[in-house]
Design a protein around this nucleic acid. Structure first.
Lengths: 127, 127
DNA sequence: CAGGATCCTCACAGATACTG
DNA sequence: CAGTATCTGTGAGGATCCTG
Protein backbone atom coordinates (compact mmCIF):
# COMPACT_ATOMS: atom_id res chain seq x y z
CA UNK A 1 0.00 0.00 0.00
CA UNK A 2 2.95 2.31 0.45
CA UNK A 3 4.57 1.72 -2.92
CA UNK A 4 3.22 0.90 -6.32
CA UNK A 5 4.30 -2.26 -8.11
CA UNK A 6 6.88 -0.35 -10.04
CA UNK A 7 8.38 1.01 -6.86
CA UNK A 8 7.36 4.58 -7.47
CA UNK A 9 6.49 6.35 -4.29
CA UNK A 10 2.88 7.06 -3.66
CA UNK A 11 2.34 10.51 -2.28
CA UNK A 12 -1.38 10.60 -1.80
CA UNK A 13 -2.19 7.43 0.02
CA UNK A 14 -5.47 8.67 1.47
CA UNK A 15 -8.01 9.42 -1.17
CA UNK A 16 -10.57 8.98 1.59
CA UNK A 17 -10.33 11.45 4.51
CA UNK A 18 -12.47 9.23 6.67
CA UNK A 19 -10.02 6.39 6.50
CA UNK A 20 -7.16 8.71 7.14
CA UNK A 21 -8.76 10.24 10.20
CA UNK A 22 -10.01 6.93 11.52
CA UNK A 23 -6.60 5.40 11.18
CA UNK A 24 -5.27 7.98 13.57
CA UNK A 25 -8.01 8.40 16.09
CA UNK A 26 -9.66 5.04 15.62
CA UNK A 27 -7.67 3.35 18.33
CA UNK A 28 -8.83 3.45 21.89
CA UNK A 29 -5.70 5.13 23.23
CA UNK A 30 -6.18 8.26 21.16
CA UNK A 31 -9.79 8.47 22.19
CA UNK A 32 -9.05 7.88 25.83
CA UNK A 33 -6.33 10.50 25.84
CA UNK A 34 -8.56 13.07 24.22
CA UNK A 35 -11.29 12.28 26.71
CA UNK A 36 -8.85 12.57 29.56
CA UNK A 37 -7.74 15.96 28.32
CA UNK A 38 -11.26 17.21 27.79
CA UNK A 39 -11.61 18.72 31.28
CA UNK A 40 -8.29 20.49 30.98
CA UNK A 41 -4.53 20.37 30.89
CA UNK A 42 -2.72 17.34 32.24
CA UNK A 43 0.85 16.24 32.74
CA UNK A 44 2.36 13.04 31.46
CA UNK A 45 2.10 10.97 34.60
CA UNK A 46 -1.29 12.43 35.39
CA UNK A 47 -2.46 11.13 32.04
CA UNK A 48 -1.05 7.72 32.82
CA UNK A 49 -2.95 7.60 36.08
CA UNK A 50 -6.11 8.89 34.46
CA UNK A 51 -6.13 6.26 31.74
CA UNK A 52 -4.91 3.53 34.00
CA UNK A 53 -3.66 0.70 31.89
CA UNK A 54 -1.62 2.41 29.21
CA UNK A 55 2.13 1.90 29.02
CA UNK A 56 4.53 4.82 28.99
CA UNK A 57 5.56 4.00 25.50
CA UNK A 58 2.09 3.90 24.06
CA UNK A 59 1.18 7.07 25.85
CA UNK A 60 4.28 8.77 24.52
CA UNK A 61 3.74 7.55 20.98
CA UNK A 62 0.08 8.37 20.89
CA UNK A 63 0.66 11.81 22.35
CA UNK A 64 3.21 12.52 19.65
CA UNK A 65 0.77 11.43 16.99
CA UNK A 66 -1.96 13.59 18.41
CA UNK A 67 0.44 16.50 18.54
CA UNK A 68 1.48 15.94 14.94
CA UNK A 69 -2.13 15.87 13.84
CA UNK A 70 -2.83 19.08 15.67
CA UNK A 71 -5.20 17.70 18.29
CA UNK A 72 -3.09 18.64 21.27
CA UNK A 73 -0.23 20.91 22.16
CA UNK A 74 2.80 19.87 24.14
CA UNK A 75 4.36 22.43 26.42
CA UNK A 76 7.73 21.75 27.96
CA UNK A 77 8.71 23.76 31.00
CA UNK A 78 12.50 23.70 31.25
CA UNK A 79 12.63 23.12 34.96
CA UNK A 80 14.22 20.46 37.08
CA UNK A 81 12.56 18.08 37.27
CA UNK A 82 11.02 18.69 33.87
CA UNK A 83 7.34 19.35 33.51
CA UNK A 84 5.34 18.75 30.37
CA UNK A 85 1.75 19.71 29.93
CA UNK A 86 -0.67 18.53 27.32
CA UNK A 87 -3.68 20.54 26.26
CA UNK A 88 -6.36 20.17 23.65
CA UNK A 89 -6.15 22.53 20.70
CA UNK A 90 -9.30 24.05 19.24
CA UNK A 91 -9.17 21.29 16.65
CA UNK A 92 -9.02 18.71 19.42
CA UNK A 93 -11.94 20.33 21.16
CA UNK A 94 -13.99 20.42 18.01
CA UNK A 95 -13.38 16.74 17.57
CA UNK A 96 -14.69 16.01 21.01
CA UNK A 97 -18.19 17.04 20.11
CA UNK A 98 -18.97 14.40 17.49
CA UNK A 99 -16.93 12.00 19.58
CA UNK A 100 -19.10 12.64 22.60
CA UNK A 101 -22.14 11.70 20.58
CA UNK A 102 -20.57 8.41 19.75
CA UNK A 103 -19.69 7.80 23.37
CA UNK A 104 -23.24 8.59 24.38
CA UNK A 105 -24.49 6.18 21.78
CA UNK A 106 -22.15 3.52 23.12
CA UNK A 107 -23.42 4.08 26.63
CA UNK A 108 -27.03 3.99 25.57
CA UNK A 109 -26.87 0.96 23.33
CA UNK A 110 -24.25 -1.10 25.06
CA UNK A 111 -26.83 -3.34 26.64
CA UNK A 112 -28.41 -4.00 23.25
CA UNK A 113 -25.09 -5.15 21.88
CA UNK A 114 -24.44 -7.40 24.83
CA UNK A 115 -27.92 -8.84 24.42
CA UNK A 116 -27.37 -9.41 20.71
CA UNK A 117 -24.17 -11.27 21.45
CA UNK A 118 -25.88 -13.45 24.02
CA UNK A 119 -28.69 -14.23 21.61
CA UNK A 120 -26.26 -15.09 18.87
CA UNK A 121 -24.36 -17.33 21.22
CA UNK A 122 -27.49 -19.08 22.37
CA UNK A 123 -28.62 -19.74 18.82
CA UNK A 124 -25.32 -21.33 17.90
CA UNK A 125 -24.96 -23.35 21.07
CA UNK A 126 -28.02 -25.44 20.42
CA UNK A 127 -26.37 -26.84 17.31
CA UNK B 1 -6.45 -9.66 30.10
CA UNK B 2 -8.62 -12.72 29.58
CA UNK B 3 -7.69 -14.49 32.80
CA UNK B 4 -6.71 -13.26 36.21
CA UNK B 5 -3.32 -14.16 37.67
CA UNK B 6 -4.86 -17.01 39.59
CA UNK B 7 -6.33 -18.44 36.43
CA UNK B 8 -9.90 -17.67 37.33
CA UNK B 9 -11.96 -16.71 34.35
CA UNK B 10 -12.99 -13.13 34.06
CA UNK B 11 -16.55 -12.74 32.96
CA UNK B 12 -16.92 -9.01 32.82
CA UNK B 13 -13.97 -7.83 30.85
CA UNK B 14 -15.51 -4.53 29.78
CA UNK B 15 -16.24 -2.29 32.69
CA UNK B 16 -16.19 0.53 30.18
CA UNK B 17 -18.85 0.37 27.45
CA UNK B 18 -16.97 2.85 25.35
CA UNK B 19 -13.95 0.64 25.08
CA UNK B 20 -16.09 -2.34 24.34
CA UNK B 21 -17.99 -0.64 21.57
CA UNK B 22 -14.92 1.00 20.14
CA UNK B 23 -13.07 -2.27 20.06
CA UNK B 24 -15.73 -3.62 17.78
CA UNK B 25 -16.58 -0.75 15.54
CA UNK B 26 -13.34 1.16 15.91
CA UNK B 27 -11.69 -0.48 12.95
CA UNK B 28 -12.13 0.91 9.50
CA UNK B 29 -13.65 -2.25 8.03
CA UNK B 30 -16.65 -2.20 10.35
CA UNK B 31 -17.23 1.44 9.65
CA UNK B 32 -16.87 1.06 5.92
CA UNK B 33 -19.23 -1.89 5.87
CA UNK B 34 -21.84 -0.02 7.86
CA UNK B 35 -21.48 2.96 5.56
CA UNK B 36 -21.79 0.74 2.53
CA UNK B 37 -24.97 -0.77 3.91
CA UNK B 38 -26.47 2.58 4.83
CA UNK B 39 -28.27 3.07 1.49
CA UNK B 40 -29.74 -0.42 1.61
CA UNK B 41 -29.28 -4.16 1.38
CA UNK B 42 -26.21 -5.55 -0.32
CA UNK B 43 -24.85 -8.97 -1.18
CA UNK B 44 -21.44 -10.27 -0.28
CA UNK B 45 -19.67 -9.57 -3.53
CA UNK B 46 -21.47 -6.28 -3.92
CA UNK B 47 -20.02 -5.27 -0.59
CA UNK B 48 -16.57 -6.29 -1.74
CA UNK B 49 -16.87 -4.13 -4.82
CA UNK B 50 -18.30 -1.26 -2.84
CA UNK B 51 -15.48 -1.21 -0.31
CA UNK B 52 -12.84 -1.95 -2.84
CA UNK B 53 -9.77 -3.17 -1.07
CA UNK B 54 -11.05 -5.53 1.54
CA UNK B 55 -10.21 -9.22 1.39
CA UNK B 56 -12.90 -11.88 1.42
CA UNK B 57 -11.69 -13.07 4.74
CA UNK B 58 -11.79 -9.73 6.47
CA UNK B 59 -15.18 -9.00 4.98
CA UNK B 60 -16.47 -12.35 6.16
CA UNK B 61 -15.06 -11.97 9.63
CA UNK B 62 -16.20 -8.42 10.10
CA UNK B 63 -19.66 -9.19 8.83
CA UNK B 64 -19.95 -11.99 11.33
CA UNK B 65 -18.87 -9.69 14.11
CA UNK B 66 -21.35 -7.06 13.09
CA UNK B 67 -24.05 -9.71 12.95
CA UNK B 68 -23.14 -10.96 16.40
CA UNK B 69 -23.28 -7.48 17.80
CA UNK B 70 -26.68 -6.93 16.28
CA UNK B 71 -25.70 -4.23 13.78
CA UNK B 72 -26.70 -6.18 10.68
CA UNK B 73 -28.79 -9.16 9.71
CA UNK B 74 -27.64 -11.91 7.42
CA UNK B 75 -30.24 -13.50 5.20
CA UNK B 76 -29.38 -16.65 3.32
CA UNK B 77 -31.55 -17.54 0.34
CA UNK B 78 -31.21 -21.27 -0.25
CA UNK B 79 -30.87 -21.04 -3.98
CA UNK B 80 -28.27 -22.25 -6.42
CA UNK B 81 -26.03 -20.36 -6.60
CA UNK B 82 -26.49 -19.17 -3.03
CA UNK B 83 -27.44 -15.62 -2.32
CA UNK B 84 -26.76 -13.83 0.95
CA UNK B 85 -28.00 -10.40 1.75
CA UNK B 86 -26.84 -8.08 4.47
CA UNK B 87 -29.02 -5.38 5.91
CA UNK B 88 -28.70 -2.89 8.73
CA UNK B 89 -30.78 -3.56 11.82
CA UNK B 90 -32.48 -0.66 13.64
CA UNK B 91 -29.52 -0.75 16.00
CA UNK B 92 -27.15 -0.47 13.06
CA UNK B 93 -29.15 2.43 11.68
CA UNK B 94 -29.17 4.22 14.99
CA UNK B 95 -25.42 3.93 15.11
CA UNK B 96 -25.08 5.55 11.75
CA UNK B 97 -26.30 8.88 13.02
CA UNK B 98 -23.51 9.66 15.48
CA UNK B 99 -21.16 7.99 13.05
CA UNK B 100 -22.19 10.33 10.28
CA UNK B 101 -21.31 13.26 12.48
CA UNK B 102 -17.86 11.89 12.91
CA UNK B 103 -17.48 11.35 9.19
CA UNK B 104 -18.63 14.88 8.53
CA UNK B 105 -16.12 16.13 11.02
CA UNK B 106 -13.40 14.13 9.32
CA UNK B 107 -14.35 15.60 5.98
CA UNK B 108 -14.46 19.11 7.30
CA UNK B 109 -11.26 19.06 9.26
CA UNK B 110 -9.13 16.77 7.19
CA UNK B 111 -7.28 19.65 5.63
CA UNK B 112 -6.47 21.02 9.07
CA UNK B 113 -4.92 17.75 10.08
CA UNK B 114 -2.89 17.51 6.92
CA UNK B 115 -1.72 21.07 7.50
CA UNK B 116 -0.78 20.30 11.09
CA UNK B 117 1.27 17.35 9.96
CA UNK B 118 3.07 19.40 7.37
CA UNK B 119 3.82 22.10 9.90
CA UNK B 120 5.12 19.58 12.39
CA UNK B 121 7.30 18.05 9.73
CA UNK B 122 8.68 21.42 8.71
CA UNK B 123 9.54 22.33 12.27
CA UNK B 124 11.47 19.15 12.82
CA UNK B 125 13.27 19.18 9.50
CA UNK B 126 15.14 22.35 10.31
CA UNK B 127 16.94 20.53 13.10
C1' DC C 1 -21.74 -17.13 -5.13
C1' DA C 2 -20.41 -17.01 -0.52
C1' DG C 3 -17.65 -18.34 2.41
C1' DG C 4 -14.29 -21.74 5.51
C1' DA C 5 -9.45 -23.48 6.29
C1' DT C 6 -4.72 -22.74 6.17
C1' DC C 7 -0.45 -20.49 6.09
C1' DC C 8 2.40 -16.46 6.45
C1' DT C 9 4.18 -11.91 7.79
C1' DC C 10 4.95 -7.75 9.59
C1' DA C 11 3.43 -3.95 12.17
C1' DC C 12 1.73 -2.87 16.59
C1' DA C 13 1.99 -3.09 21.36
C1' DG C 14 4.10 -4.76 25.88
C1' DA C 15 8.20 -5.08 29.02
C1' DT C 16 12.50 -3.67 30.43
C1' DA C 17 16.30 -0.67 30.86
C1' DC C 18 18.56 3.64 30.12
C1' DT C 19 18.79 9.14 29.86
C1' DG C 20 18.44 14.39 30.22
C1' DC D 1 9.62 13.63 35.74
C1' DA D 2 9.22 12.59 31.13
C1' DG D 3 10.50 10.39 28.10
C1' DT D 4 13.71 7.18 24.32
C1' DA D 5 15.92 2.66 22.81
C1' DT D 6 15.76 -2.06 22.05
C1' DC D 7 13.96 -6.40 21.96
C1' DT D 8 10.25 -9.60 21.52
C1' DG D 9 5.53 -11.73 20.98
C1' DT D 10 1.15 -11.64 19.39
C1' DG D 11 -2.40 -11.31 16.38
C1' DA D 12 -4.70 -8.58 12.66
C1' DG D 13 -4.97 -9.10 8.18
C1' DG D 14 -3.44 -10.71 3.30
C1' DA D 15 -2.95 -14.60 -0.20
C1' DT D 16 -4.26 -18.90 -1.70
C1' DC D 17 -6.86 -23.00 -2.15
C1' DC D 18 -11.01 -25.62 -1.22
C1' DT D 19 -16.29 -26.46 -0.54
C1' DG D 20 -21.53 -26.36 -0.33
Amino acid sequence: MTTKPDGEEVIFEQPCPIRDVLDRIGNQWSLLILEALAPGTLRFNALMREIGDISKQMLSRTLKQLEQDGFITRTLYPEVPPRVEYTLTPLGHSFLEPMQRLVNWADTHHHAIVAARARYQAENDQA
